[in-house]
């Protein structure tokens, strides 16, 4: 095997996520040969990416709009990619992502950039996602706690659910 070009292009998290989702779909259809390595990396990468903000972007058009909107800020390709992937919501994050941001961007420009990110990519979805998940967890813990109240003798079980309750 030989590598022709090491860095042909940079990919945004969104692009990788949509590729993996496609892969998963064709895998669940059952036509593919199963392989542990393929399945492992697919599962764990999907799991990671679905937690990142890029999972909330609905369409490639939105991304294109965003790229056009940040054109005026004179950013490098890598910096735009980082904006897409991480969606900064605070000025301190912008300072991290953009090299020498104090010299290159004025305070108003940073504000503008934050506004553009919020407008095109939206940043409120995280709290929405957490809502149903947490209540699900509670629903799962509920019955186990009750069961323990009955069988207190089974120490191991009791400790486990107790621990869970303290986490959530």
């Amino acid at each position: 095997m030989e590598v022709v070009q090491e860095n042909a292009a940079m990919l945004s998290n969104y692009e990788v996520l949509s590729l993996l989702k496609d892969n998963k779909q064709s895998q669940t259809k059952g036509k593919r040969q199963q392989n542990t390595n393929v399945a492992t990396i697919l599962y764990s990468t999907l799991k990671y990416l679905e937690k990142t903000p890029c999972a909330a972007v609905q369409s490639p058009e939105k991304l294109a709009d965003f790229m056009q909107a940040v054109d005026g800020f004179n950013l490098t390709k890598a910096e735009k990619l980082q904006l897409l992937n991480l969606r900064p919501a605070t000025a301190v994050e912008i300072q991290l992502l953009i090299e020498e941001s104090e010299e290159r961007l004025s305070e108003e420009q940073i504000e503008q950039l934050l506004a553009t990110v919020a407008e095109h990519l939206g940043s409120e979805e995280v709290t929405e996602e957490e809502g149903p998940h947490q209540s699900e967890m509670k629903a799962l813990i509920g019955p186990t706690l009750n069961a323990d109240a009955v069988h207190r003798g089974e120490g191991g079980n009791f400790y486990f659910s107790n621990k869970l309750a303290s986490i959530f």
Binding site: E2, V3, V4, N7, A9, L11, E15
Partner: peptide, 10 residues
């Protein structure tokens, strides 16, 4: 964080 790499293989 992800890149595309061009490769050639038999």
């Amino acid at each position: 964080m992800f890149t595309l790499v061009e490769m050639k293989d038999t």
